[in-house]
């Protein structure tokens, strides 16, 4: 039994229908517990006060904004190499979710930045990179919407995603070079000592888990919708020819 079996749309739908309720439920539990814990049962930061608590939305959404693009990249590669329709549709389904994650990260960042840096927006490398990522998402989605033939659209957007990835990474370095910023260092990392303190850490992990599950649920759900749209199209094409 191979993973590629789920490249078959029908099998994929059947699986996702079984998995989805669990994903929705688990992500809701993680998010509710994580956010309530984070907002009401952690101490205020000694420097940042209670504003630090926006971290429970900001960090997970920022992570998912990047990971959504990464998922689109992998899905695009699978489409280019193996031409599984589900893969292309999953990439298409992930893009709007990625946009929303990027927007949440940008807005919560602005809300956090106002009391901390005294400004809603600064042309800091991280902020700027996210704005550029947002533009890449917009272009990607606009290209999908502009092309009628689904296979052509899948091919073109896949290549755009590949090229876009290279340029997004390039932009990240260029932006770093252009302005050393205000943004604090990474809140989480595996190899550094200076992670955020444990009291903040545990609810944060829960929130991240919740966002990851939410992302998968949304993408599965949207992919299912895309598959049904294509299925309808195929059925209409068949009926039309029979008539």
């Amino acid at each position: 039994m191979s993973l590629w079996e789920y490249a078959n749309p029908v099998k994929f739908l059947r699986l996702s229908e079984r998995v989805l309720p669990w994903l929705w439920g688990l992500s809701a539990v993680c998010l509710v517990v994580g956010l309530v814990w984070g907002f009401f049962f952690t101490p205020d930061d000694f420097r940042q006060g209670s504003t630090v608590k926006i971290i429970y939305l900001h960090v997970p959404s920022a992570l998912m904004a990047i990971n959504a693009w990464f998922m689109m990249l992998v899905a695009s590669l699978i489409w280019i190499v193996r031409r599984h329709h589900v893969s292309a549709l999953a990439a298409r389904a992930a893009a709007p979710v990625g946009v929303v994650m990027t927007l949440i990260a940008l807005f919560t960042g602005a809300i956090w930045g106002q009391p901390m840096w005294g400004t809603w927006w600064a042309w800091d490398p991280r902020l700027t990179s996210f704005l550029i990522l947002f533009l890449f998402y917009l272009g990607y989605i606009a290209l999908w919407e502009a092309i009628e033939d689904p296979d052509t659209a899948a091919d073109l957007t896949s290549i755009l995603c590949l090229v876009g990835t290279v340029f997004a990474v390039l932009s990240r370095y260029a932006v770093n070079f252009w302005n050393q910023g205000l943004h604090q260092g990474a809140s989480l990392s595996l190899d550094k000592e200076e992670n955020v303190a444990d009291v903040f850490y545990q609810p944060l992990l829960l929130c991240i888990a919740g966002f990851v599950l939410l992302f998968f649920a949304l993408v599965l759900y949207r992919t299912g919708t895309e598959i049904r749209v294509r299925r309808t199209r195929a059925l209409i094409a068949r009926e039309g020819k029979l008539a």
């Binding site: 078959n8 749309p9 329709h85 294509r230 299925r231 195929a234 094409a237 068949r238 020819k241």
Partner: peptide, 12 residues
């Protein structure tokens, strides 16, 4: 209809 696998065929 079923002579060739079209790209939509996978969805039926």
């Amino acid at each position: 209809v079923d002579a060739v696998r079209s790209s939509d065929e996978a969805f039926l």
